[in-house]
Design a protein around this nucleic acid. Sequence first.
DNA 1: AAAATTGAACACAAGTTGTGTGTGAAATTC
DNA 2: GAATTTCACACACAACTTGTGTTCAATTTT
Lengths: 233, 233
Amino acid sequence: MSVAELAGLTGASEMTIRRDLEVLADQGVLERYRGGASSLLLRGEEPPFGLRELERPDAKRRIAAEAASLLADGESVVLDSGTTCLEVARSLADRRLTVMPLSLHAANALTGAPQLKLLLPGGEPRPGELALTGPLTEASLAALRFDTAVIGCCGLNAADGLTAYDLADAAVKRAAIASARRVIAVADAAKFSRTALASVAPASALDAVVTEEGAPEEETGALAAAGVAVRKV
Amino acid sequence: MSVAELAGLTGASEMTIRRDLEVLADQGVLERYRGGASSLLLRGEEPPFGLRELERPDAKRRIAAEAASLLADGESVVLDSGTTCLEVARSLADRRLTVMPLSLHAANALTGAPQLKLLLPGGEPRPGELALTGPLTEASLAALRFDTAVIGCCGLNAADGLTAYDLADAAVKRAAIASARRVIAVADAAKFSRTALASVAPASALDAVVTEEGAPEEETGALAAAGVAVRKV
DNA sequence: AAAATTGAACACAAGTTGTGTGTGAAATTC
DNA sequence: GAATTTCACACACAACTTGTGTTCAATTTT
C-alpha cells in the first residue's frame, strides 16, 4: 500500500497517513518502506492488542458482565490476559474479591479498586499485550490455589479444546487452570471458528463458557455435551 | 478547613473547592465532612504519591540521570519504588538492560522500552504507591541475583542508615539489597534530615549514594567516611 | 422551620490533540 | 549528477477534552 493510495482511499492528507503509519509501525502492525507500508498481520497471526480492543467492544462488555456475575463476593480469582479479560477486570472494579490478573493491562484497570485485594504474579510482560509470562509467572501460580479461573482464548471448540497463539501464554493459561477449582472461559462468537497454534486444555477442563448469541449452535452444543455449562448473552 | 475558607484563600469558587476535595478524599489525603475537610497528613506520615511527584521534579530528574549513568549496558537492575526511582525508570527507557521494577508505576513507565528486558516480581501493589510488597515479592527477589539495586528511601543518614515509612516496603527493600551485588541509593537533600519508622539497612550496606548539592555536608561526609561513594549533582 | 451545604446540569474558557499546508532536506531513480 | 519523489519539520487551524463557574433543587443541620 502506497502512502498516496491510502490518502486517496481515506480522504486524509499524505502527512496524516505518514504520521499514522509511523504509529502503527511502532506498534509492530506494519512495516514501513519508502513510499508506503506493508501489513505484517494477516498471516494467521494475532492482531495487536490496540486493534483487538476496538473490535466489538459491546459484545465483550456483555460477556464480561455475565462472567463477573458468576463470581461470588469474597472469592479468589485468577484473571487471564487478553481484551475480553480486560473487560472482565473493568466490571470487577467495584466488587469485593481477591484477584490475580495475568496482564498489566488488567492490573492497571484494577489499581484503585477500593474493596479489591489485588495480587500480582511475577513474570515478563509481553510487549503490547502486557501478558505476564515465563517461569516467574508459572511459579507464582503454582504456589497458589484459586476458587475460579477466568480464561480468555484465541480459539475454542469441542474438538481442539482451548487454544492460544503464543506458546508462553499457553503455558501460563495451563498453570492458571491447574491452580483453580473452577474454570470459566470467555469467548466471543469468532473464537469458535478458529484454532490457534498452542493447545492449552481440552474442552472437558472447562466448567463454564460465557459467549454471545451469535456462537454456532453445533459448537456450543458439542461443548454442552462434554459437560460444559454454556451461557449466551 | 472550611470550604468557604479555602475558596477565599485560593480565589476559586466553592464548587471547584468541593470537586478538588472530593478527589483528595478519594486519594486518602484528607477526610471530608460537611462544610469542609481535615488533613490526614502532617502526622509524620508520608504524603501520597501524587503529591510527592510534584515536589522538586527537576532535582529528582538530575539525580535519576546521574544514577542511570552509573549503570552499564547489559546489567541486571532491581529498581525500587517511589517517585525518585520512577524518575530513574524514565531515564532508563532507552537503555539496554534487564530491569525488575518494584512498583507498577515504574513498570508502566518501562513497558514499550524497545531494548529493555522487563521482569516483574509478584506481590500486592500498595494503593496509590503501587509498590509491590508481601511474601510473593520477597520470594521473587530471593530467587534472583542482580548486578545492581537502585534504592529509594524516606530517610537516610549515617547514624540511622536507610529508613522507610512502610514496614512491608522496608522488607522488600531489604530483600532487594540482599539480592544485589552493588547497591546505589538515590536521595534528595530532604532525606538526610529525616528518619522514618522502619529501618532498612545500615549506611555501610550501600556502595553509592546519588544526591544533590543541597545535601548537608556533615551527613554526606559521614557517609563517605563509612565507605560510601557520594555523588552530588 | 430556617439556614447552610451539597450535588447535578449547563455554559464557557483554556488547553490538548489531531489534521492540513508549505517549505526545505534527504533519498531514490533515471 | 540532475530530476523526481518522499519525507520531516514548522506553523496554523479546527475539534475535542478538561477544568471552572453559575444556577438551582435536594439534602442536611441547627
